[in-house]
């Protein structure tokens, strides 16, 4: 299990990386390496060139921009878990990252790598769907912004050109009396979720005023449960309300594979959406 030969590049600027992408047709981008390296070792991917982003300055880091949190693509999962801004303004991110792999893989794994790899069961894409985060991509003609809703084109295929580089993510800040819930079901701690559910609820005067629900692992891309979100607004945050949302989750399109049926994924979606909503209602923080 040794990688096939490749030519290694370690640019020090994003521009340099984009230029390398433009001139190397069969290149793979190496971010944290926690998904690419196994595929290289198993020779599932055999690129001519590997472009390592780890020596680029300026595309890692977390910045509080008031209405949003700006996260560099090369920010390590570990740093997302340790950051005070995120802990305060988007506590669902560290809560979900607890489920991502193991601490040793989070020490290398990056948010950008996860979003570009786009495993449908991965936690970070599920969260970015929840927030409809805005992604910034740099190409030969400069930068463009993409809402997450338009990011997944198909199973594990993001909307990014071969000569483009994901440089950052903007996560909008939900103010008000907001709670969050992230639950997932996997066979073992650290495994990819079979199904994961994330929820944000804002409650004012005993009524839900804003809601977002996303489900990972059920379909070829993370999905938003918009029908349930609409139904939640105006309802009281109680067990009956959440049960009704769960029944909507049971009706989602779900994929099946050699191990897991679509019916089981739908069943899990219902269970987990209900639990995620209940969790969100239980930790309303009154400010964040």
């Amino acid at each position: 299990m040794k990688p096939a030969p490749f030519t290694y590049h370690d640019p020090t600027t994003a521009d340099e990386a984009v230029a390398l992408l433009a001139t190397h047709e069969d290149a793979k981008i190496l971010a944290g390496g926690q998904s690419l390296m196994p595929m290289l070792n198993m020779r599932f991917v055999v690129p001519d060139d590997v472009i390592d982003l780890n020596r680029i300055d300026g595309i890692a880091g977390i910045r509080d921009a008031g209405e949003s949190i700006e996260i560099g693509a090369m920010t390590r999962q570990r740093d997302l878990m340790r950051d005070d801004v995120i802990a305060t303004k988007a506590p669902i991110i560290p809560a979900a990252l607890h489920w991502v792999g193991h601490f040793q893989t989070r020490n290398r794994g990056t948010i950008g790598g996860s979003l570009c790899h786009l495993d449908p069961a991965a936690e970070l894409p599920c969260l970015m769907a929840l927030y409809d985060a805005e992604l910034t991509v740099q190409g030969p003609d400069g930068a463009r912004k993409i809402p997450f809703a338009e990011w997944p084109l198909a199973y594990m295929i993001p909307s990014i050109g071969p000569d483009e580089l994901l440089t950052g993510v903007s996560v909008p800040h939900w103010g008000g009396n907001t709670g969050h819930g992230f639950v997932e079901f996997s066979r073992r701690h650290g495994d990819f979720a079979i199904v994961a559910a994330a929820a944000l609820l804002t409650v004012d005067a005993g009524k839900i005023t804003r809601a977002a629900i996303s489900i990972g692992g059920a379909d070829v891309r993370p999905i938003r449960l918009t029908e349930a979100e609409t139904a939640l607004v105006g309802a009281t945050p109680d067990a009956g309300t959440f049960k009704a949302a769960a029944e909507i989750a049971r009706g989602i399109e779900a994929m099946s594979d050699a191990y897991v049926s679509s019916a089981y994924r739908q069943r899990l979606a219902a269970t987990l959406v209900e639990r995620a909503l209940a969790a969100a209602a239980s930790n309303l923080n009154g400010s964040a």
Partner: peptide, 13 residues
């Protein structure tokens, strides 16, 4: 100082 998988990192890194 951070624990990492040495099979998922290139020596050159």
């Amino acid at each position: 100082g951070e624990a990492v998988r040495s099979c998922l990192m290139l020596a050159v890194q």
